[in-house]
Design a protein around this nucleic acid. Structure first.
Lengths: 347, 347
DNA sequence: AAAATCAATGTGAACGTTTGCAAAACGAAT
DNA sequence: ATTCGTTTTGCAAACGTTCACATTGATTTT
């Protein structure tokens, strides 16, 4: 029985040429080929040339899986989102990709479709070393402990994290909501409703807090009847609108915690022939593309979604390469975008 | 020097517990653990139980990279798109994910940002066995030969492929454009402009063909002046609209080859105080969410994007599992969605 | 001219799985 | 009891890389 020594012949099954084939073609050892692939400095330029040409000729491309197994780095970033189908997340992902553009990392995409169970199981998978880093967009609360107990670099997006244990990037949700509400107050409104997201979603909670704070600062008492629980979806906005319509008197203005539900509220009110903004003003949050096309064009609080994605990715890349991290909790400023859906109250 | 025998001790570096740790914990061989993981039938139920419990206790999760290297299957599907930021693609991806939901495959995402060069290099990467199958959304013509010369299952979306060499799923682009144009003709229009996508994009070309065919069928001569080259983007639509405005007489109707450019055309015309649809009717193609919120609400040809994505993924999964394929070229029917942006011509 | 230094190259052993093959265990049939 | 099929189990060898270490060859220092 022969000793099973190092890498043997190749050209076996389906896969393309391997490092060994290239080595044979170029007349060098496979280690040298590996060095060329990884741009190590210590290889003579004529040999490097030979290897490069051999790779060309054979159409060689490295096997990431083998590379990962041997080297411990997969060159993949795991991206966990609830759903890609929303303009909101698309824009963040766009930013993420931009930051990734200059690197050789790939994105491994996980979509949880709002099922916490899936999120947990994905997270266990990924944190096992299948990816080099993890980007969590609007994760569930329960998910964070899982990823924290493993030693994997990760950045959380859109989740103002009070424990400060994970790196995070998000918009100034509280301040944005405060500004939106103050803007309505400044126009003269006093009866201002709020359409929330699902309770427990951190960004939603923060915005509701900002809304309340602005009212209090203006000396307006908070009316629980005017706070309608939505779900960040169009239908939730519609339901909230209908709920408001059942009140004895309508509010004169509505702050919706995101644009999609603002659109839903508007739809519900207009269906009952209420004119926006003449009878009721509506302001949203996010500034998704549809807001600009809506009728009336939606006044809203703009989140720098693209920048949030880009910043988060850059932060993660820094963490992966082991750089010093000055600010682990980053908040990016929101801004008021005035369009046509708000005006002073009629009365 | 000792003989280097099979798998050794473990609990080395960063990674979590391995198959070997589980085996030790359960008091069986690692092969048995592997069998349990892969649901092989030939393992006694009491041992299976023991292994399962050991896996639970240790928090074991399989290393996909090692699995791939050894077994040749990665449980990953490569998804190549130009850009995730468009509602158009989001909806397709949503369908893809739905089909993937019941399987254990993951999505490896590649975004080319409209750079053919990137697309080629990605394709070489992926077809090397890093993924088990490939989904190409609106690829460049040059990309297909690359992926065809490797033996990897792949499905092309939104690319009516005349060579019929690759499996494909797309909408009935020609018929949809024919229907849109015929609808305008039916309303009484005779001077009908067309805003195209970039030449060479197959779906765009097909739609232009359908437009021309409908005109011819109605005995209306094709006026080259009325065919404006766009780029499937908002700005392209704006430019096309401005081009049309420079004509001696405006057309009475415009067929835009996608909704985004229809929105751009409308924007350009409205900026010049042209009323839609009173002075000019506009019809789009796609039925993206914004179309319903636009002002006026956009009449358009609806593509079943979700179904396209889902069907493509199902087809690919069938191909991967080696099932017989009856129809490799699938076309899904479009439908006319009548809203408010078209009416009979004024004159 | 020998010794010491340094860069360039090669060797062998991982990395965590799957899998072909052979050994062992177990019943059933003789 | 012995033989003969079945399962059930385990060993060893891949899979295609990276990396620590040993070796070689070239260049400088003494």
């Amino acid at each position: 029985m022969t000793r099973p020594s190092s890498p043997k012949a190749s050209t076996r099954s389906s896969g393309g040429p391997t490092i060994i084939d290239v080595a044979r073609e170029a007349g060098v050892s496979y280690t040298t080929v590996s060095r060329v692939i990884n741009n190590k400095h210590n290889v003579r330029s004529d040999k490097r040339e030979r290897v490069l040409r051999a790779m060309q000729r054979l159409g060689y491309v490295v096997n990431q899986h083998a590379r990962m197994l041997a080297g411990g780095r997969s060159q993949m970033i795991g991206l966990l989102v609830q759903d890609l189908g929303t303009a909101y997340i698309s824009e963040i992902v766009r930013g993420i990709e931009t930051a990734l553009d200059t690197t050789s990392y790939d994105l491994l995409l996980y979509t949880t479709h709002r099922r916490p169970f899936r999120e947990t199981s994905y997270l266990m998978q990924m944190s096992n070393g299948i990816v080099d880093g993890l980007l969590l967009v609007s994760p569930y609360r329960e998910s964070l402990p899982i990823v924290r107990q493993r030693p994997i670099p990760h950045v959380v997006i859109d989740f103002n994290d009070e424990t400060q244990e994970s790196a995070s990037v998000s918009a100034t949700n509280w301040q944005g909501a405060y500004e939106a509400t103050s803007y309505l107050i400044g126009l003269g409104h006093r009866r201002i409703a709020c359409v929330t997201g699902l309770p427990g979603i951190v960004s939603s909670d923060r915005r509701v807090e900002g809304y309340c704070a602005a009212l209090e600062a203006a000396g307006i008492p908070i009316d629980p009847q005017l706070i309608c629980v939505g779900d960040f979806e169009f239908q939730g906005g519609v339901r909230a609108g209908e709920q408001l319509l059942r009140l004895d008197t309508l509010p004169t203005a509505i702050f919706a915690c995101n644009d999609v539900s603002a659109l839903g509220v508007i739809d519900a009110l207009q269906a009952h022939h209420i004119r926006i903004p003449e009878e009721v003003s509506v302001i949203g949050f996010d500034d998704i593309p549809s807001s600009a096309y809506a009728h009336p064009r939606l006044t809203t609080i703009r989140q720098p979604l693209f920048d949030i994605g880009r910043t988060a990715m850059e932060l993660l890349l820094d963490m992966i390469s082991g750089e010093e991290l000055t600010a682990k909790q980053i908040e990016l400023a929101t801004s008021l975008v005035v369009r046509d859906s708000c005006q002073p109250p009629f009365s």
